[in-house]
């Protein structure tokens, strides 16, 4: 870890000014990902701007019913918030399924969105990686890729996004708000993460110098009956090998509305719009769920050792939607 300057920001404008246009400056939130990456040498900032004391630690309900979550709200406080648990249970479940109690107490919402992939080649600076060093190659394609992408990847990078939280946020049409020196802006989460293409090092559409200030969850009554299921290689404290955020509104045996997003299958949380299209207006029966999963997974391009993820996601879609429909029928 190289030496760095440390500044503490007390207001948003000040934080943005401290970051300036310096490509070697980073905002420090909980530090649970950044400090680790600095230790492994993936990140080598020359200045950190500490934003933990910014007044962005509130969760508020707007007049239109939207929930505004401040960027420095900790993952733990997000999952514990009554409105989140009541109106967006899959979001609370996803956050609770991530990391550990200690890390959730430290990690922030903004940092969670910006966390980097856990691909073992990315985190080992002695290895080539197109995400770290554009053009150096992607050893995962021919190497160990059991937990790599089956959707939306390219030959340049097959890493998956590690966030649990971002999966339900994607399903619920969350919008990311940010501040720059030129003023505020916002990005729907669906547009926040860039496609991999041949630029895997460019991960988000955030403008340079932007500070995430919060995430807005629009009102989504369907989300009240939602669930997050995460599958991993041990029962807890591990990243997903596949996860699903699902919400279902069934009326008279027919799917009125459905939201689906898949985790750990792509470079970003994967909104399953094709599946939602099949579900909407169709009978709420397992065959429909399977057809919906198949419609989404038709685009899957598994590598030699991660084809199980296609089976896993199909099974998860059917299982979780069945559970939600049964729950609604009770």
């Amino acid at each position: 870890m190289r030496e760095f300057d440390y500044r503490r920001a007390t207001d948003v404008a000040g934080a943005v000014a401290l970051l300036g246009a310096d490509p070697d400056t980073r905002f420090l939130g909980g530090g649970t990902n950044l400090v680790d990456l600095m230790k492994t040498g993936v990140e080598r900032p020359t200045r950190l701007v500490d934003i933990r004391e910014l007044p962005l630690d509130r969760i508020e309900t707007a007049d239109d019913g939207a929930l505004r979550i401040g960027a420095t709200v900790t993952n733990a406080d997000l999952a514990a918030h009554p409105e989140v648990r009541r109106r967006y249970p899959a979001l609370a479940q996803a956050v609770l399924a991530g990391a550990s109690g200690q890390l959730r107490n430290m990690a922030t919402v903004g940092g969670n969105l910006l966390q980097r992939t856990r691909c073992g080649y990315f985190t080992d600076v002695t290895q080539p990686c197109n995400k770290r060093i554009p053009g150096s190659g992607c050893p995962a394609v021919e190497g160990e890729h059991r937990n790599h992408a089956v959707l939306g990847a390219s030959d340049h990078c097959v890493a998956v996004h590690p966030s649990d939280m971002a999966v339900p946020l994607t399903a619920f049409d969350a919008v990311v708000q940010y501040e720059t020196a030129d003023g505020p802006g916002e990005l729907p989460l669906a547009e926040f993460y860039l496609p991999v293409g041949d630029t895997p090092h460019r991960e988000t559409a955030l403008p340079p110098g932007a500070l995430i200030t919060g995430v807005v969850l629009p009102p989504a009554p369907v989300a009240a009956r939602s669930r997050y299921r995460k599958v991993r290689e041990r029962a807890s404290y591990a990243f997903a090998i596949g996860s699903l955020a699902a919400a279902l509104d069934v009326r008279d045996g027919v799917v009125h509305e459905a939201r689906l997003a898949l985790g750990a299958v792509a470079s970003r949380p994967w909104r399953a719009l094709a599946a939602e299209g099949v579900l909407t207006g169709a009978p709420a029966v397992p065959d429909t769920y399977a057809a919906a999963a198949d419609a989404e997974l038709a685009a899957a391009r598994p590598l030699p050792h991660n084809g199980y993820k296609v089976t896993l996601m199909r099974n998860l879609v059917v299982a979780v939607l069945t559970e939600l429909a049964e729950e609604a029928a009770r």
Binding site: R118, P139, S236, A238
Partner: peptide
Amino acid sequence: ALRDRASGGLVGADLAGYHVATHAD
């Protein structure tokens, strides 16, 4: 532990990549 053929080294050589049982297991 996963050994990468190309480099001859391990991939994910840490306690997040190499899983040992935790409480919940």
